[in-house]
């Protein structure tokens, strides 16, 4: 007979180990987190290249250069980010009940999921930042093409590019997970309250601007920030959203 210990005081696996194992559980199917974002990146890049070739083929003279420069406003680099919203919702809707089925605590799940988000955001941001640098090198060599070097990237250093991509991903993960968590806990009523709360904050800012004739101090403050600081500031709402998600999930009963 194999003795099976029934002494809970002997924790078989330390909690830190279980938290990293939650990350492994998220990543056990690599298509979701790594595959699809990079497939989207590849497809979007392919479209950008086709567009650039069409411009080269159909526009000539100085207009061609203007048109190619115009691709810098395509936001194409952000195209994989929208998919991450799906990941954020799926993490709560499907991975959370699955994790509880594996006897994982809510706390271990939340910390492991946060770790996964941070790791994935860092991984993707690093990849996209490297590609941005390669594109810059191509631009410097005299070929005008913009896919990664979009928006604020033109003047920003590589660190700022990385930080902006990192923060945006984390914000998307955290906000979508928070919405899914609020739904898991309070269902439709929670959704209504959350949307009303978001609307009240936005209307409050507009009302302040209309009534006082000036933008609220927070908006002034945001516009005064450097690009890097602005994106670093995005981490604040990301953390708040994650905290909201945790509060919702902590006492969310699992339903059939």
């Amino acid at each position: 007979m194999t003795a099976i210990s029934t002494d809970p005081a002997v924790a078989r696996t330390g909690t830190p180990r279980r938290i990293t194992n939650v990350m492994r559980l998220h990543l056990v199917n690599r298509v979701t987190y790594i595959g699809i974002p990079w497939i989207i990146t590849a497809v979007a890049l392919g479209i950008s290249i086709i567009v650039a070739l069409l411009i080269v083929a159909s526009v000539s003279g100085p207009d061609q250069q203007v048109a190619l420069e115009g691709m810098g406003y395509s936001w194409a680099v952000l195209s994989p980010l929208w998919y991450l919203a799906v990941v954020g919702v799926q993490a709560v809707n499907a991975v959370f009940p699955f994790a509880l089925g594996f006897s994982i605590t809510r706390r271990e799940y939340a910390l492991g999921t946060l770790l996964t988000y941070v790791a994935m955001a860092a991984f993707n941001a690093t990849g996209w930042a490297i590609l941005t640098e390669i594109e810059r090198a191509i631009n410097a060599a005299g070929v005008t093409f913009h896919h990664f070097t979009a928006l604020w990237f033109a003047d920003a250093g590589v660190g700022t590019v990385w930080l902006s991509l990192f923060s945006l991903q984390l914000l998307i993960f955290a906000v979508t997970s928070a919405f899914a968590a609020v739904y898991a806990r309070w269902r439709a009523l929670g959704m209504v309250v959350l949307w009303v709360a978001v609307a009240v904050v936005l209307i409050g800012i507009v009302a302040f601007a209309v009534l006082t004739g000036t933008a609220p101090p927070i908006i002034d403050w945001l516009f005064g920030l450097s690009t890097a600081s602005l994106f670093a500031a995005l981490l604040v709402p990301a953390v708040l959203a994650f905290a909201l998600g945790w509060l919702a999930l902590r006492w969310a009963p699992l339903r059939g």
Partner: peptide
């Protein structure tokens, strides 16, 4: 955690990620 890792609950309506 110490208690839960001694338990396996096979739920009839277990959901699995896509």
């Amino acid at each position: 955690s110490a208690v839960l890792q001694q338990i396996c609950f096979v739920s009839e309506g277990q959901r699995y990620p896509d």
